[in-house]
């Protein structure tokens, strides 16, 4: 590893499974935000000392069995679960969100869109809370536009789980406008009880510069976690 690669004070792991698509964009977003991306492989049984982890989107293992089901049972995910229990920030995007739910790091599940269609569009969202490791830079209530591209994007959970999520301020993002997928209470992102693990269906890594995305609204997810890691924001 070269000297300039190790100069970043914050190292963020980006996991690649067979079938992952968005690891390159996620690593680019990490770099854009000022941290050092570290590639992690599905067969890794440790996280190479990273400060935070992104589980990116795609179709890991071809969505076989259920979206995220096989990835959630791979060695690197056991390491992610252990790290998350020690407070390491983890972000699951799209298939990554499905994986974190399958792994039990986040409650509920993502199921087939109510309308049966694969939805691909620039999605308006409301950031409901900035009290997480990944949203500290946003104003609570901020409206953002980030691409959404999924067919297994409908969040579901039982009523007691929903009550806990709402009561504890753990609904991180909600869809605005017409629901893209029928998600319960328009939920598009949630957090763990300690606010360190966040999962969301939309893709903030695709909205970090105006050349390649519809906005730059997604970049602050990655800046926020750098703040959280470096301790400048108490989360």
């Amino acid at each position: 590893m070269s000297a300039d690669q190790t100069s970043a004070a914050c190292r963020i792991g980006v996991i690649t499974f067979p079938g992952t698509l968005d690891d390159v964009d996620a690593a680019r977003a990490v770099r854009h935000a000022g941290a050092q991306p570290v590639s992690l492989w599905h067969a890794d049984d440790d996280l190479h000392g990273v400060d935070a982890v992104v589980v990116p989107g795609g179709f890991s293992y071809g969505d076989y069995l259920r979206a995220g089901a096989i990835a959630a049972r791979q060695p690197v995910l056991r390491a992610v679960v252990d790290a998350a229990r020690r407070g390491t920030p983890v972000l699951g995007i799209c298939n990554g969100f499905q994986i974190l739910c399958e792994a039990g790091l986040l409650p509920g599940a993502l199921v087939r869109n109510a309308g049966l269609h694969f939805v691909c569009r620039d999605q308006r969202l409301r950031v409901e809370t900035n009290a997480t490791a990944w949203t500290g830079r946003y104003a609570a209530g901020a409206e953002i536009v980030v691409p959404l591209k999924s067919i297994e994007g409908r969040y579901v959970a039982d009523s007691s789980t929903l009550a806990a999520l709402e009561g504890q301020g753990r609904v991180v993002l909600r869809y605005l406008g017409t629901s893209p997928n029928g998600a319960v209470r328009d939920i598009s992102g949630i957090a763990s009880a300690d606010g360190r693990v966040v999962g969301l269906m939309p893709h903030p890594e695709h909205a970090i510069d105006s050349l390649t995305g519809p906005s730059t609204d997604g970049l602050d997810f990655f800046r926020s976690v750098i703040d959280a890691v470096l301790g400048s924001v108490p989360v």
Binding site: L65, R66, A69, P107, A109, V156, A157, D158
Partner: peptide
């Protein structure tokens, strides 16, 4: 623990 997801 694998074939079914008890949540859904």
């Amino acid at each position: 623990e694998l074939l079914a997801n008890p949540v859904i």
